[in-house]
Design a protein around this nucleic acid. Sequence first.
DNA 1: GGCCATGTTTTTGTCTACAATCTGGCGAAA
DNA 2: TTTCGCCAGATTGTAGACAAAAACATGGCC
Lengths: 222, 222
Amino acid sequence: MAEKPTLAEKVFSELTIAIERGELPPGTKLSEQMLVERFGGSRAPMREAIQKLEARNLVARIPHAGARVVSLSLDELKDIYEVRLELEGMACRLAALRMSDTEIAELQGLLQAHAASIAAEQGQSYYQSAGDLDFHYRIIKGSQNSRLHQMLCGDLYHIVRMYRYQTSTGHKRPGQALQEHQRIVEAIANRDAELAELLMRRHIQASLTNLETLLAAQEGRA
Amino acid sequence: MAEKPTLAEKVFSELTIAIERGELPPGTKLSEQMLVERFGGSRAPMREAIQKLEARNLVARIPHAGARVVSLSLDELKDIYEVRLELEGMACRLAALRMSDTEIAELQGLLQAHAASIAAEQGQSYYQSAGDLDFHYRIIKGSQNSRLHQMLCGDLYHIVRMYRYQTSTGHKRPGQALQEHQRIVEAIANRDAELAELLMRRHIQASLTNLETLLAAQEGRA
DNA sequence: GGCCATGTTTTTGTCTACAATCTGGCGAAA
DNA sequence: TTTCGCCAGATTGTAGACAAAAACATGGCC
């Protein structure tokens, strides 16, 4: 059951986490030699790990010139959020139509737990990261579209997480985000697909606006 | 200007074409040794080519067990089209808002050329492949969203092309497809984003329906 | 003083060899 | 006869060395 992962996979997942956490800031060069020194082994698995990162758009590779952690311009970030807005709105609409009653009940339970942890004042950090992502993840899964799931969770979310960590954002007021989440689940429970989509789009739009102001402020300080 | 591509890239692009054309049918095993015999060189570049194919979802790799050309179930194909419907509808809406007048004029010119080639009875095969794809490509580019462009052209279209070649489809009646294209461009020229999106969605929906009937027929014969 | 040519150094691309893992078939025991 | 385990072959994962390309520094020239 231990499922022995290959070295390339281990390096890949460790680097993924490191990049998301900002331990390897955008623009950092990833030379193969450097990875060998850090993880051990030979260059072959390191190359493979870098290629996997490239496939997820976490690094950009230039032939004969190595790989660097992606550094997104504000415009590119907006493009990504624009796509995310569309796809996750779609996921929410489909989830309203396709989720089982059991799944919806679980989602409601999740929000209650979130509400409790916020009321206990410990929600600040918890809700930002794990809670919010778990909520979105369940809805995406509820869409029951494997490709949609792959695109959102496989590609876009890594980038989103990366910029969240770096700006240490998430919604500034977890209370408001929770309220939005509750309305969304309400719409899903009522099988109101169009409303669910609309609410999700607004929710993500708010998230983007929030991220933009933080980035602008960060820019100002720099 | 000759831009010396690496061996891995050459193998990758040749394999991409071969898979799209159905020369390597779904399920075909791609062993590294086999690629060495076919393309020359050593195993390392072949591995890299296979990984690039995996990144584009053209092959599926299982650790220690090799890579096979993807074989999609009908459900998976529907999922892909569902996503394409959404994203390309979005692209069309954005294109209506963002394309320059010049680009729109070029698009209109393209359709006139198509109309002429169809009238000359040579459109049958031409319009199916290059013409249709060119039309969609320009609209996607017109959305001016780089990530959207990458997702549609980089990932989804290879799969779509692959299944088109295999079923030798495209729209059964190029005349009708052209008419739909003309209406879409009309809406874009009027900057009517919502109508443009709606028409594009219908256009792709029709394309999926068409593909489904062809696959069903193919299934029946097999 | 600034700019271009050039040689050195580093890094990537490729090759060959070896180790680990999977696949398929044979034979022995129930 | 069926099923389990084991052995042989093939295939993938990894290692280390060589070749080619790029980045960098140095020195000469304008």
